[in-house]
Amino acid sequence: MSKGYHIVVCGGIVPDPLQRLEPVSTPSGPALRNEMMLPAVLDPWAASALYEAAALAKKMPESKVWLVAAGPKAKLQQVMMVTGQKVPFELVAIDAPAGGFTESFAVAGLLAAAIKSIPGLDYSRLLVFGGWESASRGAGSTLQAVGELLEISAQFQGVDELAVAEDGSFTVLERVEGGRHQVSKCSAAPAVLGWATGNLAEPPNNPQVGMANMRAIMPALQKAKAEKLSAEGLSFQHVALPAEQRETRIVKDTPVDVIANEIVDWLRGAN
């Protein structure tokens, strides 16, 4: 393959997974309590996709990586201060709500429009990456819609590995039931790949990458247009934390043999 890929990574921002999340009702629908105060990160699966994209671009000369990210501008800027140090990319920013209760198809519409507006994007070399689900909406339905809007019918979800052959075809490993991977071969780009975790560790923070990225990140953020997301016909009756509290029996100061016997009895269904 003479030319590399044009890889567009779709990645939203989500609250740091360790934060306590609570829903609240607002006039515009459900939201998170203190949503703007919660530290945000690039969606973990989308982050895997971004690292995979960067690794692929490094292997394939003449490749280029874009990150198309939607979120409130101030939050997006903050996340980019961290993400921007990881791998080289060009940001395409969309100033829009990033909460989990937004409509996946509305988000997909914004993402697809943003991708279509990237100057010089070569569809014959296009790989659209993203997380197979977000840690916010957690639906796994955005990326497929982006692919449809871009008329891409080679799509993969739960991807852990992408291997490119000499002839430009590639093999994809997708997570399926039973702890297995489905292996598929695809003849050529364009394709949509929703990544699971992949196999790459989080890259170290690289100050030079940060400096290079930031030259385009700040202008991209300044250019970002404020967009609204529609939720036509969707009504939430309620949103709640699962209120499950168990009576925990605590067994301590008990000999190991006694504990082990009790566990084995339980495993065997005796109690």
């Binding site: 101030a74 800027q77 903050q78 201060m81 923070n205 100050p207 930031m214 700040m218 953020l221």
Partner: peptide, 12 residues
């Protein structure tokens, strides 16, 4: 950061 006149890099 919004001023574009300085860069702040956390996690470093």
């Amino acid at each position: 950061m919004g001023s574009g006149m300085a860069q702040i890099w956390p996690g470093m």
